[in-house]
Design a protein around this nucleic acid. Structure first.
Lengths: 253, 253
DNA sequence: ATACTAATTCCGTTATTTGGAATAAACCGA
DNA sequence: TCGGTTTATTCCAAATAACGGAATTAGTAT
């Protein structure tokens, strides 16, 4: 083959750095993880940084994804964002129609979740607490909990610390309580939480991951706490798994 | 220098393809525009596609940005999305406080605009027509018009055709009328439109572009139609320009 | 069917990248 | 503030990954 080496390395570097966002990565660790000699890694990273594909913090000297990645992402979002929503919609619509549950799609934005799509159930109990575009700290809704628990340990802790002051406004959730929920979500493989900000509402959430190990979105189904029995969770989970797999599949090719 | 050539070429290719999203680019045009010999361009693009940085349409054989760009974009959005909002906020808050006007920040999603931020004015006339996260076809609000008129000609026409059927629901705007507004926006350098979906509301919008030529967002200030005099437009424009420049500056470094 | 353009592969040559070693800069504990 | 240590950066001869002219194949329009 040909033309390939550099491209493969660029992509590996970007994925690796993305997986460590936003605290970033030090040069030496990057070189080691990429399995490149320091000079080689250095030239590569410098070139990427000079093209704004990476940004290097002036003080910590850590590498992070750069503004160009963000811009290119917005360009491709015109294409994939609607796909993301469209792919989930049928699964979620079916659930909404058959059970009246409401389904949400979240993406992460800093230390928050943003609701990018909502499929309303017909059932009278709705959760107007999570309107489109609304932001909540990661962890207070099932989508945020799914995202949070799928993050690397250090990043999870950083987020927990960062959102701590805001948790009081969201059902007075305590950091330690949230950390415990994260642990439960990690071992269960899905996030289940009784929304403290919206009493009486409970939701199941699943993270959606693409080629990078970083979760990119989360899909959830919410219903009243009373109806969220173990049996119902077992009903909902396959649907979420399907949707998540379908998205991963579509993104992968 | 060293390690640079491939990286520079990768970045040029990605920017070029982003600028032609979503209709994509043919191989030969890409090779020509990148000023690369066909075999060289071919290997580069094939490598990028195999890494999911590009996607090639099976039928048209055109290259577009791939799913990995979208994913990496979402990772960096955690970082830059809040920056985008935060950077605009002061300018917009000032405007809201001093005049009561409401200010919006939009990004593009397919053929729609999505409102990602809103700074409410104190003035009683608000426009609840554009809630956070809401989607409207490109062109029906000032932000969408700014984005639409900043797109390449062919893409603008494609969007106009795509959204035509939906325009009836948005104040019965006609495609030809919208096309004319686009022309006016292009020659004026900013978008000014009396929102047809929200009668009595008028807004000024400016596209925000980064390193790529593709507009990535749009910032607007809305007020009542009666108050949107030429004098007021001249007052608002510098604020928008400032905000747009500030964002471009922050993204550029 | 035919001619044309676009896309892809081949392979000897060469320019780009490589990496060991040296250097410089930051960091840290006293 | 200062040595000692880790981390980051630069140099340059050697190696090899990428290059591109030419040939080939696929696709498309006439």
């Amino acid at each position: 083959m040909a033309g390939v080496q550099s491209v493969a390395r660029v992509v590996r570097a970007l994925k690796l750095i993305a997986a460590h966002a936003p605290e970033g990565m030090r040069f030496t660790d990057l070189a080691r993880e990429l399995d490149l000699e320091p000079p080689t890694a250095h030239r590569l990273l410098k070139a990427l940084a000079s093209e704004q594909m990476l940004a290097r913090d002036a003080h910590s000297r850590r590498y992070n994804l750069g503004p160009l990645v963000f811009e290119l992402g917005l360009s491709s979002a015109s294409r994939f964002g609607p796909t993301l929503r469209a792919t989930c919609a049928p699964v979620r619509a079916e659930r909404a129609a058959s059970t009246g549950d409401t389904s949400f799609l979240f993406v992460r934005s800093g230390d928050d979740t943003v609701c990018v799509s909502r499929v309303e159930g017909t059932y009278p109990i709705q959760t107007p607490m999570v309107p489109l575009g609304s932001r909540q700290p990661l962890g207070v809704n099932a989508g945020g909990l799914a995202l949070l628990s799928a993050l690397p340990e250090v990043e999870m802790n950083r987020v927990l610390a960062a959102i701590a002051p805001r948790l009081a406004k969201h059902g007075d959730l305590k950091v330690e309580e949230l950390r415990r929920y994260c642990g439960e979500a990690q071992s269960a493989g899905f996030a289940l939480i009784a929304n403290r900000a919206a009493p009486g509402v409970s939701a199941v959430g699943l993270p959606i991951t693409g080629a990078t190990t970083t979760p990119i979105a989360a899909i959830t189904v919410a219903t009243t706490e009373a109806r969220m029995t173990d049996a119902r969770v077992k009903e909902i989970l396959p649907l979420l798994t399907n949707a998540a797999d379908e998205i991963a599949r579509r993104l992968a090719q």
